[in-house]
């Protein structure tokens, strides 16, 4: 594992911890898209089916279990927690996300590394992850004001993607025969979706002002 990959995993973990902290500390999930969180739960469950078939490392297994458990916990809180669920911005979180699921699955049927159940589901999870942030970005844009923890959550989620790209570049340069067409292409698309958000995040950081996204 190289330093970029580790930084990517750690910022990913940090983003999830920040989100859990926000929900736990403020007993509120305002500004958080439940649809994005449900998409991430689907992403992790379908990608980590290999938990049952392959063992890679303790680190790998631990992280997979943490990602699945934390995404399910967040979805559970937003749906069923008696206090938290009341702050859910239902009327702002109206992105038609079944379209994303369908399109990702259709693409996985066309473009995969091998035509097997596990490989098609793996490709599906990669494509879905690339677009899973869209409901969250749309919600933030609609609500205008973004609270600090939610802003940092999205920032670290974007940083995780950027580090993964550096990781692939590093591996491409140092490992013979290294190619990641599916993950690499999807990763670039996914990171590009954050470009706009990053721009406004840095502006607010530079001006030391509250993060606001233009409508």
């Amino acid at each position: 594992m190289n330093v970029f990959r580790l930084a990517g995993d750690m910022t990913h973990l940090l983003s999830i911890l920040l989100l859990l902290l926000k929900i736990y500390a403020t007993k509120s999930c305002s500004g958080v898209s439940r649809k994005t969180q449900e998409l991430y739960a689907i992403v992790f469950i379908f990608r980590y089916l290999d938990l049952f078939t392959d063992f890679i490392s303790v680190y790998n297994t631990f992280m997979k279990v943490v990602f699945i458990a934390s995404s399910l916990a967040i979805v559970w809180c937003m749906r069923f927690h008696p206090v938290v669920r009341r702050s859910y911005d239902r009327e702002l979180d109206t992105f038609r996300y079944f379209f994303l699921v369908g399109a990702s699955f259709a693409l996985a049927l066309i473009w995969h590394e091998k035509f097997s159940v596990q490989e098609v589901f793996w490709a599906f999870s990669i494509y879905l992850e690339a677009v899973a942030i869209l409901p969250q970005l749309v919600l933030l844009q609609r609500s205008g004001n973004v609270d600090n923890l939610t802003g940092q959550y999205v920032f670290f989620l974007g940083a995780y993607r950027a580090f993964y790209i550096l990781n692939w570049i590093y591996r491409y340069l140092t490992e013979p025969r290294f190619t990641r067409w599916i993950a690499g292409t999807s990763g670039v698309v996914q990171t590009a979706l954050y470009a706009d958000f990053f721009y406004y995040y840095f502006i607010s950081w530079k001006n030391n002002s509250k993060l606001k996204l233009p409508a």
Binding site: D9, N60, M63, W122
Partner: peptide
Amino acid sequence: DDVDDTKDEL
């Protein structure tokens, strides 16, 4: 076959 080693990433 380098399909398998893809899955060491999360």
